[in-house]
Design a protein around this nucleic acid. Structure first.
Lengths: 227, 227
DNA sequence: CGGAGTGTTGATAAGAGTCAATACTAGTGG
DNA sequence: CCACTAGTATTGACTCTTATCAACACTCCG
């Protein structure tokens, strides 16, 4: 197997805090780390949801498949993001590591137990679910009504908000991943990026095609029509 | 104004129960009814969310608009459905009555107050939000990856589950509404329905085009590829 | 260096959109 | 009650965006 198991330090970093747990409210929640190689599955659709995950390093894609192989990526999970949070017992997406990825694991059951008594934790669960819902709602508008250029512009702006360490954005995902996120083909994504390049809105850095510089955020925002 | 205001009977019907409230847990939550005429707005996007709603009779569409008028309907709310539940302070959709519609109103604040103390209510809020999330996730797959025929088939099956009083389904919404829900044009929806009619999968009842009979659910499910 | 994986670009096809004509339905008022 | 009208639905002809198929280029590894 490709898994490397390590025990987390006892001084909690920030994952439990993200659920609104204070050090006093819950002393011991199983907290481990796993590392997944590029392209490996973290969990499958309809598998029982035993853990909730937080990305420590790397990037993850969550997707659904139709029976003939068509794929729709519902979300990308980047460093710090929590994913795999389901209310029912089973996962509604398949999650895969896009690149080598280390995640923190929280047992779902321990989380639920705490939520039963701690209203603060319960509220945070609701808040996180609501954020996911809001993202899905915005994405429905993109998938249902935006043109290919608008979709790619929206994608770049979203990633800029979430990744941009500096002016340059290092995308972990391939053109195919972007296409399956935006409901397009990889060729259409490539053409849209070329077009934005011609227009002087974005630039490519170095010799890789995944390092993108946003030269004109203003114009990108104009291309991506807002609601 | 088009509003008719009535006070609800003191014996709670089922709306508060839907939030997990027992008669003992909370005696008084403001509970009123409003009636909206066909086509009128119940609330607008970005308006502050003062109430949560439950459809008593009628039907509601929730949608987002792009600046140039393109519309994406995120959900239809039918009898019994609760909508307008936002975590943030403001609505993320515009809600309109599709036909004359009566709703029950619950003050958002009173709901929040109860949720702070009553874990049961908080859990029900989470559960409802999760159901909305699940619907949005499934709809992303439809919008991103399904063909027009698959979308219309999926729509009919969804409505069949939710409306079908008998074998016949009386759709409250127009072809345009269906189109904006499925990310298509009304012409494409009409053609898909005609095609399903030719194929003997559905039938039209009486002299209206909105009464549809599902003649072959099996084949409909085959057309709508599942994940 | 070689080969697999990834990305770009071009030619063509197909599905859905647009525009337009017509039919059907429901609501209005004489 | 019927005729008129506005709104809604269907269908056809044509266009356009995006998908598909294919060739080629680049990059990252071993």
């Amino acid at each position: 197997m490709f898994l490397r198991i390590t025990t987390a330090p006892l001084s909690l970093p920030n994952s439990l805090n993200d659920f609104g747990m204070t050090s006093s409210s819950n002393p011991i929640v199983s907290l481990n780390e796993f590392t997944y190689k590029k392209g490996t599955e973290i969990y499958g659709e309809k598998e029982s949801a035993e853990y909730v995950y937080q990305v420590k390093t790397g990037a993850v894609r969550s997707y659904k498949l139709l029976s003939d192989g068509r794929r729709q990526i519902g979300a990308f999970h980047l460093v710090g993001d929590i994913f795999g949070l389901e209310n029912g017992a089973s996962h509604r997406f398949t999650a895969e590591a896009i690149v080598e990825t280390t995640v923190r694991l929280i047992r779902r059951q321990s989380l639920e137990t705490v939520a039963d008594s701690d209203v603060m934790v319960a509220k945070n669960l609701l808040c996180m679910t609501t954020n996911n819902l809001q993202h899905a709602e915005d994405h429905m508008l993109l998938l249902g009504r935006k043109t290919s250029l608008e979709r790619v512009a929206a994608f770049l702006l979203e990633m800029d908000k979430r990744i941009a360490a500096s002016a340059v954005m290092a995308l972990p995902m391939s053109r195919r991943d972007i296409a399956d996120y935006l409901g397009l083909t990889l060729e259409t994504v490539s053409r849209a990026l070329s077009r934005l390049h011609e227009l002087g809105v974005i630039g490519f850095l170095g010799n890789t095609q995944r390092q993108i510089v946003l030269l004109d955020r203003q114009q990108l925002a104009t291309i991506d029509l807002q609601d």
